[in-house]
Design a protein around this nucleic acid. Structure first.
Length: 544
RNA sequence: GCCCCGGUAGUAUAGCCCGGUCAAGUAUGCGGGCCUUUCGAGCCCGUGACCCGGGUUCAAAUCCCGGCCGGGGCACCA
């Protein structure tokens, strides 16, 4: 009743609850900044996963939001690759070496591609390993030493740990500035080996969280950085063995890049505290920080290391990497919608596949035209045809008639036509006796012998089918069709190398679709065209 | 063990800061119906939630305390 009387009222309420870039809550203290600067800072040890999409999209969404509000804003992409050993950049992967030139590798191209696919174009791109070469972190380190905010610690790790756990300063903490400066230069000159010296930030030895106590800002790593090797050569890479830790590099870069707001996952909460010491020592303004929860997706892990361990291609359509989802047929619009829907809550979010598919279907439904295809084809004969030639015209999309129709012609031989229908629908035919062939005619089951199913024409008109409530099934002409193979990614376990496949036949028109295009096969589901080969069409099942 | 977060229907989210308008909205799922030459889309109806216990208050999903559960952190990883 409310609906019929005040439909516009309900419309309005609907609008209010739909989440968009505009409905994102404002960033804290946004009025204090002339320009809002946001950043997305992945480690290039693997391609991006759905988990990374949350910070990437949310940060970029805020850039767009402020831009639309008429405020200057900027989105920075920063590669955080300051561990050449434990988290080696993904460029070592031979798969990628094959497909990309070294120049591309140096750009950490896959992550840029992933972002591009999401429609995210960074205003600026930085790579921390380049900034190590530029000496940026070393300069800040020297300044910290000079003002007494940092010291070189030469304690063996276990010895330091005992001091830390008992909240006592180690002897190194009381070294004077000159000694520290001298020792730091020795670190840079290669006079210490890995583990022999680190630069520590003076924090608070009685901080309740032990990891905050005099945390390490720079350490020696005895491994050549793969990217530096590629970019500058072995000898040059050899020179850079002192690497900033995550917290140090982030604090320095966030300041130098004028980052105003940091949106990141809640596992970084303690890092904000650690970084605050740098900001205080140097008199810098620390960015406003928002921590959101982690993301989980039904039936998959989003842990990069676990995904790598699976040993699958990074873009395997079963993987929740952005590349995998893209291969799978998930559209970037759907990922945006989910991320905006999940928002910046600090609790974890669990995304269900039903939800993901439903959102994706909304966008795919518009895009994908409809085609006839049968899985496990079974031939049937229809007798009693009174025409030489049966012609039918099927619209490409029921909601978009402007896209036109294609014509399918079937020749009659001795008053008979032969067609294929799906094995499933043969059961239906036997049970219900009468069915309608979509856009073609109504038929009735007669008998079957020698594996041949004989039916006869009832009528061509749709009204009969409606009146008798006949089931409508899709079909494919016996003479003119194309073989299809559908990869059932959804049914294939991760442990299988080969995808489970379904084979069938489709109307020839389907073969006109190009690689990467989408179709909806009547009563089957959405598929993506993978490739054409020798008259066969390889498709991938997306979802129903 | 210690230190942080967080807990609204199967799932996700709105509301919580500024207590009443919330017998809690939306999306998805599920059940039913309509429509449709698809088991898709659309439309309609229904289903279903404030973690538990105390307290404050005329009034609590909203504030306070305790418990339980979940997550994260406790690296010379990021």
């Amino acid at each position: 009743m409310v609906r019929s009387r005040w439909p516009e009222l309900l419309e309005e309420r609907k609008e209010e609850t739909k989440k968009t870039i505009e409905t994102l809550p404002p960033l804290p203290n946004d009025e204090n900044y002339d320009m809002i600067v946001l950043r997305f800072a992945p480690n290039p040890d693997f391609v991006l996963t759905l988990g990374n999409a949350r910070p990437a999209i949310l940060n970029y969404a805020y850039k767009l939001k402020y831009e639309r509000l008429g405020k200057k804003s900027k989105f920075i992409l920063r590669f955080e690759d300051t561990d050449p050993k434990v988290k080696r950049p993904f460029i070592e992967d031979p798969q990628i070496r094959e497909r990309y030139s070294e120049k591309d590798l140096i750009n950490y191209k896959f992550i840029i591609d992933d972002l591009e696919w999401l429609g995210i174009r960074p205003d600026e791109i930085y790579v921390q390993s380049d900034r190590v070469v530029e000496g940026i972190y070393y300069d800040v380190a020297r300044r910290l030493i000079e003002i007494g905010g940092a010291y070189v610690c030469t304690c063996p790790e276990d010895v330091w740990r005992r001091y830390r756990d008992s909240k006592q300063p180690c002897p190194c903490r009381s070294r004077n500035v000159e000694e520290n400066l001298e020792l730091f230069e020795k670190m840079l000159n290669g006079e210490f080996k890995e583990g022999e010296a680190v630069l520590r930030i003076k924090t608070d030895m009685s901080h309740p969280d032990p990891s905050v106590r005099d945390w390490v800002a720079l350490r020696i790593v005895d491994a050549k950085h793969p990217r530096l090797v590629l970019k500058y050569g072995e000898d040059a890479a050899e020179k850079f063995k002192v690497w900033p830790t995550y917290n140090f590099a982030v604090a320095v870069d966030d300041h130098l890049m004028n980052v105003t707001h940091v949106l990141r996952a809640q596992e970084h909460r303690i890092n904000t505290i650690k970084q605050s010491y740098i900001f205080r020592y140097l008199g810098w303004r620390q960015p406003e920080t928002i921590h959101f929860g982690r993301l989980h997706i039904e039936g998959a892990t989003l842990s990069k290391s676990k995904l790598r361990e699976l040993g699958l291609r990074y873009d395997d359509p079963r993987l929740p990497t952005l590349a995998g989802l893209r291969e799978r047929g998930i559209l970037p619009e759907a990922i945006w919608e989910i991320m905006l829907n999940v928002g910046i809550k600090s609790s974890d979010a669990r995304i269900s596949l039903a939800n993901l598919y439903s959102i994706n279907r909304k966008y795919l439904d518009e895009r994908a035209n409809r085609y006839l295809a049968v899985i496990d084809p079974v031939m049937i004969e229809v007798e009693g045809i009174d025409k030489e030639l049966i012609i039918c015209e099927i619209p490409y999309h029921p909601s978009h008639l402007e896209r036109g129709k294609r014509r399918i012609e079937i020749k009659t031989e001795n008053g008979k036509v032969r067609l294929y229908i799906s094995k499933n629908d043969v059961e239906l035919l036997r049970k219900k006796r009468k069915i309608r062939l979509l856009e073609l005619m109504n038929i009735e089951y007669m008998n079957e012998h020698d594996g041949k199913i004989i039916t006869r024409l009832v009528s061509y008109d749709l009204d009969t089918a409606r009146r008798e409530r006949l089931d409508i099934v899709q079909w494919v002409p016996a003479e003119d069709n194309v073989r299809i193979i559908v990869e059932r990614v959804d049914k294939t376990p991760l442990t299988e190398k080969e995808f489970i496949k379904e084979i069938g036949l489709a109307e020839p028109e389907l073969a006109r679709l190009g690689k990467g295009e989408f179709a909806q096969l009547f009563r089957y589901g959405f598929v993506k065209v993978i490739e054409h080969r020798d008259g066969e069409l390889l498709l991938r099942f997306v979802h129903e």
